[in-house]
């Protein structure tokens, strides 16, 4: 009797062979995201022997809610969005991050018209300029720059700047400051470095003026119930697959030198800052 139940359960489970879905915060240009994640979906499919599908979203909030609603089981999130996602899904944890991610930075960039120069200490003279963050839910584009602005200038961005905007993503922040639509902006250092290398930035128009101290950022976060959904040890398998990834093309698309193990508590500093600023309850 038990056997029959087991067999029929197996049959049913193969009939409804689940697809492992994952998403990512849309922190840069869409074409770059699609290129990056379609490659890694293929890689994971080969490694995990299940169908893997990337679900593109248009906002940080949408990636968190998809993770929360179990419409995706894995997500490439920022420091802040990762903390938020793990607060909402109790049984979820960080499994991997880029080797550079524990020591992440934000660049404060300025249009050259402003005559703001690169400095080692916080550029107090950005006060009164127009300023753009990246996305409202971004760590390097919002949380950390806002934290350092508040700490150094002792006031909220709305009070300090002539105009505060949210460009939507890091690529857009660079182009808005370069075009002069905003005088100053905050951008993910990885995105900046890669765009600079690719020759997409006109340094006669926009330059880095300050680099924040290091903070932990991006990571892969997985739902705790994936083992139930995809078989015992599945999350370990995902973690192992990510860490042993050595495909140069995929790594370059992120861009990360390699992936290393990560755990949720690595991001406690982000949670603390998030609470301080009032972005997390």
């Amino acid at each position: 009797m038990n056997k029959i139940i087991l067999i029929s359960l197996l049959l049913v489970s193969t009939m409804f062979a689940k697809t492992f879905m994952f998403t990512a915060i849309p922190d840069q240009d869409e074409t770059k995201l699609n290129e990056r994640f379609s490659k890694i979906a293929k890689y994971l499919e080969n490694e995990l022997h299940v169908k893997v599908k990337f679900i593109p979203v248009k906002s940080y909030a949408a990636s968190i809610s998809a993770f929360r609603n179990n419409q995706v089981q894995l997500a490439w999130l920022g420091g802040l969005s990762g903390v938020r996602a793990r607060l909402l899904v109790k049984d979820s944890y960080a499994i991997a991050q880029g080797i550079e991610d524990p020591q992440f930075h934000t660049y404060i960039i300025a249009n050259t018209h402003t005559n703001l120069k690169k400095s080692e200490i916080f550029p107090m003279n950005i006060k009164g300029k127009t300023f753009t963050f990246g996305s409202k839910g971004s760590t390097s584009g919002r949380l950390m720059p806002e934290y350092y602005i508040r700490e150094n200038l002792k006031n909220s961005p709305d009070e300090l700047f002539k105009k505060v905007g949210f460009s939507g993503n890091h690529s857009k922040t660079i182009s808005l400051v370069q075009s002069g639509a905003y005088e100053v902006g905050a951008v993910n250092f990885k995105v900046w470095d890669r765009e600079l290398k690719a020759g997409n930035i006109d340094t006669s128009k926009v330059q880095v003026i300050w680099k924040t101290p290091a903070f932990p950022d991006y990571q892969f976060t997985i739902r705790g119930d994936v083992d139930e959904q995809f078989g015992k040890g599945f999350s370990k398998k995902v973690q192992a697959a990510l860490i042993k990834l050595d495909d140069k093309e995929i790594l370059a698309a992120f861009p990360r030198a390699k992936f290393i193990e990560s755990k949720s508590s690595d991001f406690d500093p982000i949670l603390k800052v998030g609470r301080e600023i009032g972005l997390i309850d």
Binding site: E30, T31, V57, G168, N169, K172
Partner: peptide
């Protein structure tokens, strides 16, 4: 589509965003 649903606005938003 501008907020991520797969309709015409999805591509329109992406195209606008990237110029």
């Amino acid at each position: 589509g501008f907020i991520g649903l797969m309709t015409l606005g999805y591509f329109l938003q992406g195209a606008f965003m990237q110029g």
